[in-house]
Design a protein around this nucleic acid. Structure first.
Length: 109
RNA sequence: CGAGCGGACUGCGCGGUCGCGGCGUGACGUAUGCGCACGAUGAGGAAAGUCCGGGCAUCGCAGGGCAGGACGCCUGAUAACGUCAGGUGGGGGCGACCCCAAGGAAAGUGCAACAGAAAUAGACCGCCUGUCUCCGCACUCGUGCGAAGGCAAGUAAGGAUGGAAAGGCGAGGUAAGAGCUCACCGACGGGACGGUAACGCCCCGUGCCAUGUAAACCCCGUCCGAUGCAAGUUUGGGACUUUUUCAUAUAGGGUUGCCCGCCCGAGAAAGUCCGUGAAUAACGCUUGAGCCCGUCGGUGACGGCGGGAGUAGAUAAAUGACCGCGCUCGACAGAACCCGGCUUAUAGGUCCGCUCGUAUU
RNA sequence: GCGCCGUUAGCUCAAUUGGAUAGAGCGUUGGUCUACGGAACCAAAGGCUAGGGAUUCGAGUUCCUUACGGCGCA
């Protein structure tokens, strides 16, 4: 999981500038094709205190990791939307919907 | 039973599958960095706010002065504290109990609006005495009484204010009054006794030198060098070119905010090449004034001795998903160098001690 | 992680050494003017000075504490 982390400031600003944005009810995904699979989550202070922010990050990582074995290589940034409640089921469903629509899932694998 | 006060503790539990962080082991794989397998382990009472105090680190270390800051009843505890313990004084509550930045206003300066006669100091009204002028009444006819006004002296009883009005209240006293005198209370001064002390209590004396504010400046006493793990240490990172800033001592830079004193000869920027990367890697980084139990000393905070258990250490940052069971249906909330406190948030539950009221015995 | 500021009317800002009724501009509402509107003029409303406590006779101002917002440090 750690090798998939997207860490560099340059890469993240690059994603914001040239990445493709895809929207779902619970979150926004920004991605760009790459030679390796990398991901990051972005949870701002508007989502609440640190306990709640940590929980959102865990839910996003857990939901994303379900699709890791099937993904073609790219850089991905996950940004949740502000809401009353955050559930694993909603994140899991929306991430699957987006990745399927954008044809990033390699069904042959 | 109802209402309440104080103290201590707890902070969902159990089982499975997949996954995450660092750690250990490996007759494993790759070729030194990781992967794989197995094993044990992995957030709090506040981890929070950053309000105090330390450890630790670097700079200064020949220090000195000024400025600045903090604290402030007493005694003790402690590495230290603005914390804690025990007491003193004051305030609140019927009570259990709770609260208090609680030195100095007779070292000096400032401020006290409005109201009020007057605000830190006095005489506006008033009261009273003497005298003069004028008026009225009475009669024994120049005296008495009454009223008004002027002048002089006395006084601080009373005067709608105000947070505060020159000790309070009562009695005597007086022309009217006044600690002028007296009793009680208060204040101040002195002494004896008790207490380590803050202070308490008793006796004697003084008619009483006099408001509040120091979380206004200030004075007195005690303490404080500065910066903070983004501190700091080590490795890699070197080569070439260009530009620029001053200087051989009245400059420039460093040293604590400033001054004295002390130290130093180089420093800065841009571009190109090598390089995965420099917002990097490793160290600092977790055993510490720590925790639990017993015992001894102490009213207690705490200390001495003996025994025991003891792996969070990340770096865009680790605890999640799904399923089953139980119950009271789960609050506030996430370590980031480490400790001691304070403050604030907190569903529900447990235990101990105590007070008041009602009823019964 | 560390250090430092701010919060006053719907908005932007004042308020002297603590002194009484917290002020100004814009906006809002009503009126005058106009055939109607704008502009102009006149008037009014609107504030628990971020919350709580303390000091003081008296607090927007001083002190403590909490909340929110903002800035700086590689």
């Amino acid at each position: 999981m750690r090798c998939l982390r997207l860490k560099k400031q340059k890469e993240i600003t690059g994603l914001h500038r040239s990445g493709k944005r895809v929207y779902a009810p619970s979150l926004t995904v920004i991605y760009v094709p790459s030679d390796r699979l990398k991901m990051a989550v972005c949870v701002g202070k508007k989502h609440g205190k640190s306990v709640q922010r940590n929980r959102i990050k865990r839910l996003l990582r857990a939901a994303f990791s379900r699709y890791v074995p099937y993904l073609s290589p790219c850089c991905v940034l996950l940004i949740p939307h502000v809401s009353e409640t955050y559930t694993f089921a909603a994140f899991h469903r929306d991430i699957g919907k987006i990745l399927g629509r954008e044809k990033l899932i390699d069904h042959s694998a």
